[in-house]
Structures are given as structure tokens and as C-alpha cells.
């Protein structure tokens, strides 16, 4: 480990330790925002793990998240909660592997469309099953798990995701993904099994999203497809990740924190124009800060070498 890595690790650990005290200092609205921030931190960071280096934009986050949430909601009376978390993770992994296998030959824009279409299909399917087999439009989730417990679980997951991403970034697999993002032909002729590498990362990313959905299920006492599979979630994850910057591990977090607050404000002010606002935010980010806040900060540091030293 180099000196900067040790500093980074120490700073990261300090931030997590401080963040763990949030539920003790703040309840209600403050804690609710904190849960949202950590949730998006996990989702964007795991999304970036795959989509950052490969430039394959996935819009399937809502499908993973929703399936995870539904696994808990549907089976909460059958299995103990911890078992459900494991099951949700497995469901996410299986779905990701299937998507990966189906999209191996697709590239660029086709992958985006496929993931978006698939997420929509899963949503329709769950809605259909719910209305034909069930008696209501949603599921009741009654657990003893309160908001602080949800928050701490998410925080622990975030820590695990950051550590895992950091390890992967320094591993052969991480290097392989960057090479694939650069030129798949070079990757293959260098001996990289591009299909395996892509699927491996997509599975990690998808199972984390499913686990996040599972952890959040008790937040709502009544889970409906509209909440669990909201396509907005997939878009928000992409926007926040791009806003923060996908070239650095800590990049997405820089997008999540300001955007969660901004989005809270926007949805309160324009409750009926959220989709329009989302589109506007997306355009502004892509045009004004294509490399995200992380890119901006790094440029500033580069221009002022004194600060960097």
C-alpha cells in the first residue's frame, strides 16, 4: 500500500465512523435523507464498477432493486429476514448473469435499450403476477426493522462496496475491464476472456443493487411495483454517477450528496414535472461537466501543482 492509499483508507474509515452517528443525532426527515444518500451512494458506486470502465450504460438498476425488494416483501412471513437478504442477492446475481449472457454480442446503444426494456418487462411481469394471483396491488411488509437499522445496514453495505471496488480496481479483473472499455479487440487478443470479465462485474453490480432493494423493503410498509421498479431510479443512478464522475471510486459520491438534496427540492417544487426536470439535469450535466465533479477537482489540482504536492 502506498502512502496516498493509506491516507485514503484512513479518511474513508473516518467518514464512515462519523456517518454511523447520524441516527443518534437526527431523526425523522434528516435521517430519511441520510438513508436516501447512502442508498444512492451504494447504487451509483456499484453501477460505476461495471459501467464506468466499460462505458456500457445499464438502465436495469430498477429491475435488480425491485426484485430484491419484492423478494423480501413476498417472503417475509416465510423466511427469516437475514435469509431473505441472501436470497435477494442471489436473485440479483442470477438476473445479472442472464442479462450478461443475452447481451454479450450487443454493444453500445443496444445494451442501453436492452437493459431499459428488460427493466420495464420485469416491472410489467411483477405487476401482472400481482394483479392476477394476488388480491391487492401490493404487498404488506411488517417487520420490526426501523429507519436507523436500515441506515446502518446500508452503511455497512456501502463500506463493503467501497472496499470491494477498491480491491477490484487494483486487480487483474479491474485492469481487464478498463482495457475492454478502451478496445475490446485489443482485450481479446491480449488473452482477456471479455465475456467472463463483463459478466463477473455485472453480476457483482446487479446483486448489490438487489441487496439494496431488499434492505430498503421494510422502509415501506406497503410495497407496490410503482415504488419498487420505478424507472426513475435507474435514470437517477446514471445521472448522479455522471455528475460525480465515473473515473474515480469516490466520484459517484460527489454526485449523490448534492443531487439528493437538489432532487428533494425539485420534486417538492415541481411534483408533476419530475421527468422533465430529470431530462434537464441530464442535459446540463453532460454538457457542462462531462467528467463530473471528480474530473473538475482533478483539473483544478493539476492546474495548481502547489496544492497537489
Amino acid at each position: 500500500m502506498t502512502g496516498t492509499e493509506k491516507t485514503g483508507l484512513a479518511v474513508g474509515a473516518a467518514i464512515f465512523l462519523a456517518a454511523a452517528f447520524v441516527p443518534l443525532l437526527s431523526g425523522g426527515y434528516g435521517l430519511s435523507l441520510a438513508v436516501t444518500v447512502v442508498m444512492y451512494a451504494v447504487l451509483t458506486t456499484s453501477w460505476t464498477l461495471f459501467s464506468g470502465p466499460t462505458h456500457y450504460i445499464s438502465l436495469a438498476t430498477a429491475a435488480f432493486f425491485g426484485l430484491g425488494m419484492y423478494t423480501v416483501a413476498a417472503l417475509i412471513d416465510v423466511f427469516p429476514y437475514p435469509v431473505l437478504l441472501v436470497m435477494a442477492t442471489a436473485v440479483g446475481a442470477v438476473l445479472a448473469a442472464l442479462i450478461g449472457l443475452a447481451t454479450l454480442r450487443l454493444s453500445g446503444v443496444y445494451f442501453v435499450i436492452f437493459t431499459l426494456g428488460l427493466a420495464e418487462m420485469v416491472r410489467q411481469l411483477v405487476t401482472w403476477v400481482q394483479t392476477t394471483m394476488g388480491t391487492s396491488s401490493g404487498l404488506v411488509v411488517l417487520t420490526g426493522i426501523d429507519e436507523p437499522m436500515i441506515y446502518w445496514q446500508l452503511l455497512a453495505l456501502a463500506a463493503a462496496v467501497y472496499l470491494a471496488s477498491w480491491r477490484i480496481g487494483r486487480s487483474r479483473l479491474g485492469f481487464a475491464l478498463r482495457i475492454i472499455g478502451g478496445d475490446e479487440v485489443v482485450a481479446r487478443h491480449s488473452g482477456i476472456n471479455t465475456a467472463h470479465a463483463k459478466i463477473a462485474l455485472f453480476v457483482i453490480s446487479g446483486s448489490v443493487a438487489a441487496l439494496t432493494g431488499a434492505i430498503l423493503a421494510p422502509r415501506w410498509t406497503y410495497v407496490e411495483p410503482v415504488i419498487a421498479f420505478s424507472p426513475m431510479l435507474s435514470f437517477l443512478v446514471v445521472i448522479m454517477a455522471l455528475l460525480g464522475g465515473v473515473h474515480r471510486l469516490w466520484g459517484p459520491l460527489l454526485g449523490v450528496i448534492p443531487f439528493t438534496f437538489l432532487w428533494d427540492l425539485v420534486t417538492a417544487t415541481f411534483p408533476n414535472q419530475t421527468a422533465l426536470m430529470l431530462g434537464l439535469c441530464f442535459l446540463l450535466i453532460v454538457y457542462i461537466i462531462p467528467n463530473g465533479f471528480a474530473g473538475l477537482i482533478e483539473n483544478l489540482i493539476r492546474r495548481r501543482p502547489l496544492l497537489a504536492g
Partner: peptide, 10 residues
């Protein structure tokens, strides 16, 4: 480095 990681000499 790309050449030296994934080939027959890893």
C-alpha cells in the same frame, strides 16, 4: 502492460 497480464505468461 496489457500484453503481459492475461496471456500465457501472467
Amino acid at each position: 502492460e496489457t500484453g503481459g497480464v492475461f496471456g500465457h505468461a501472467r
